[in-house]
Write a protein that binds this DNA or RNA. Structure first.
Length: 336
DNA sequence: CGGGTTTCAGCCAGCTTCCG
DNA sequence: CGGAAGCTGGCTGAAACCCG
């Protein structure tokens, strides 16, 4: 550890959870490789981290009631299985050490004791090396517990964590991943979802729908091709405006029954790839406005028409307004 | 023809209901 | 009350289908 450190950036350890949020080290989100964990496992692990947070940097044994861990399941039987999976899980963590990239390997969970009483306590330790990772964190994610518990797809939680972490990074709002990295980060088991189409359909899209509906960020994933093959994706995100955040909060109050219908009806489909090739996406509010003003129209089709129309003209000073103006005339000329 | 998308049926986890 | 059985919906790979 270098002694002559410059002014330190915010460190994960300095961020304390409050009633509504819990904090998870940013580095843990970028799992390069992980043995498959279920959604319940991840939730339990986050609970354990939060519970230990006040003394996370000390070599002590933490204690939590098993009742707090079992979530909605009406017995403790699965807690033990989750704990075993967590202990067996060895993660490779991509870190920066003295400016150079490095890979660190560590178990998620140290030794522990599970009392056999039904309402018993669970004692556990955070591995030393993991504590060090937490201490060295320069990026942190603030996880809203309510959102975390509402997410139902196992990939949605991971995606949400990624965005929470990256959302704090003001100086960028997109990042490129190779498909292989993305599978690793999302925790897709080895050998599963090997084709892009299946990966998109089964992992990415369900996760996007949920995260967009329930978090305070809007997220999109665009495929990037090398030749004809999709080899990378561009992950973009931006903060929702106030009304979007309010909608997400309101949705969290509802039962999750029927959420699928509501969120799907409420979320714009992803911008198709062929449009991407013809110009940069407009602001999300613009699409939202267009959708509200002209319900029933295929927004991306109209955008295509607009791009074709505008191709030979001087670029508009305000493309968003120009598009909305074009949309109005288009809707008048082509009533549904 | 290569590659992406849609559809299908099997499988499994989680939840609810039933029964002792 | 606790466990077993049954149900439901999501996840999955494969195969059919579609497109440039």
């Amino acid at each position: 550890m270098a002694k002559d450190v410059k002014p330190k950036p915010v460190r994960t350890v300095e961020a304390r959870p409050n009633a509504d949020t819990l904090v998870k080290p940013g580095e843990l989100v970028d799992l390069v490789e992980v043995t498959p964990l279920t959604l319940a496992d991840r939730r339990i692990y986050n609970q354990l981290l939060e519970n230990a947070w006040d003394a996370i940097d000390k070599p002590v044994t933490h204690v939590i009631s098993k009742g707090d861990l079992r979530g909605s399941h009406n017995s403790n039987d699965r807690v033990g299985e989750s704990i075993e999976r967590l202990m067996a899980c060895i993660v490779k963590v991509r870190i920066t050490r003295d400016g150079a990239p490095a890979i660190e390997r560590v178990q998620l969970l140290g030794g522990n004791i599970e009392s056999s009483r039904r309402d018993g306590l669970f004692e556990y330790e955070i591995p030393t090396r993991l504590r060090k990772i937490i201490k060295d964190s320069t990026v942190f994610a603030r996880l809203q517990r309510e959102v975390m518990f509402a997410l139902s797809s196992k990939y949605a939680l991971t995606l949400y964590e990624m965005i929470q972490k990256r959302g704090k990074l003001r100086w960028r709002s997109s990042e490129r991943f190779s498909l292989e990295d993305l599978r690793g980060i999302l925790g897709v088991p080895k050998g599963k979802l090997t084709s892009w189409s299946n990966l998109k359909l089964r992992a990415i899209e369900p996760a996007l729908v949920e995260v967009n509906a329930l978090s305070d960020y809007v997220v999109s994933v665009e495929p990037i091709k090398t030749g004809r093959r999709v080899t990378h994706v561009e992950l973009r995100w931006w903060a929702k405006d106030a009304s979007g955040t309010a909608t997400a909060e309101r949705e969290l109050q509802f039962s999750k029954v029927g959420r699928k219908q509501r969120t799907q009806g409420d979320t714009l489909p992803a911008r198709p790839g062929w449009l991407e090739a013809r110009g940069q996406a407009l602001r999300s509010e613009t699409y939202e406005t267009a959708r509200l003003r002209h319900p029933g129209f295929d927004i991306y089709h109209v955008e295509g028409e607009w791009r074709a129309w505008a191709k030979d003209r001087a670029p508009a000073t305000d493309p968003d307004k120009a598009f909305l103006a074009f949309f109005r005339t288009f809707a008048e000329r082509n009533p549904l």
